[in-house]
Design a protein around this nucleic acid. Sequence first.
DNA 1: TGTTGATATGCAATTAGTTTCATAGCAGGA
DNA 2: TCCTGCTATGAAACTAATTGCATATCAACA
Lengths: 181, 181
Amino acid sequence: MALEHAILVSLLERPGSGYELARRFDRSIGRFWTATHQQIYKVLRRMEADGWVTAEEIGQDGRPDKRCYSVAAPGREALTAWLREPVQPETVRHELAVKIRGAAFDDAEGRTALITEVERYRADHETTLRRYLTGEQRDFPDADKLDAGQRLQHVVLRGGIEYERMVLAWLDDVLHTLHDL
Amino acid sequence: MALEHAILVSLLERPGSGYELARRFDRSIGRFWTATHQQIYKVLRRMEADGWVTAEEIGQDGRPDKRCYSVAAPGREALTAWLREPVQPETVRHELAVKIRGAAFDDAEGRTALITEVERYRADHETTLRRYLTGEQRDFPDADKLDAGQRLQHVVLRGGIEYERMVLAWLDDVLHTLHDL
DNA sequence: TGTTGATATGCAATTAGTTTCATAGCAGGA
DNA sequence: TCCTGCTATGAAACTAATTGCATATCAACA
């Protein structure tokens, strides 16, 4: 499992509550490791029980209380140990690719519906790309003045940007192929 | 779930045994939907119980017997229904991206180990790209003479090829970044 | 004759992840 | 005052997926 480790990295970059982590997983880090808030809360409790993180109850006014988590020494050791293990190949669940191949076994109506879905999917990825580019300008304006952590975050973001560009180009290819069928 | 549907597509393209499906999932379709042989056998049994597929026991000489699966009408209907559902966003479990951001919290030794892992990872992706390109030349030599199913398989393969090229370029970026740290 | 490797199938136990539901505070607008 | 929406946390039930076994046939080779 590696959700624990994704959480450790995120909390080392900046401590935060389960809710804040869930939002980060919806944005930056979640593009490489998806997780729902239910899953995050559950794992955080386990990590707390294992002594990997510590929680601090923070009362807020104008908002409900929150539990702010920080990484403890055993968590940091667990992360270091995990970092030295061999990298597992990425696992992908790319439903659209399966549906495109499946379109061979559907009729014209189904293919029209698929084209609409691909267009919606493309619009989503265009939004994601724009969000990445905005975030890049905001967080890494001057490439020379970055510390090690920021450079590593930046290179991962560049991977996300190139991924989105590649997907958009491929979806155009898919749309042409579906139209020419 | 969609493993059922990925199996349906693969079996419609060509009927086969669990073992053969597992090999296909290791190669073409598995790049978009990973699955182990245990998982595939289990799901095939359930699909058979649900009447989605039918099995035929085939005795072979020189080899153990096998159960060859074909898609039945209810399975095909289930596939069509699924094809018309909205496409879910792809879910990714990209361990390497997490480890790269995690490297900010490790020492020089850990970063050296990560560079070695990235190089190995890069070599794996180079192998995958070469296998895709070989497969493309073998299966789609003449782009004009393809039927609808082959064109759809081809466009998905092109996606895989572009993905691998993008990953290789990004990994070079990662290696430069790690060396310059 | 024994070992390796490919083919072929599966169970059992565990872990990971999704889905559904539930609660609660407070802000701002209709 | 009621409704929506954001913040904030979580339990419970279920489904999916992984991990670790286990078995068996047959070919090729030492």
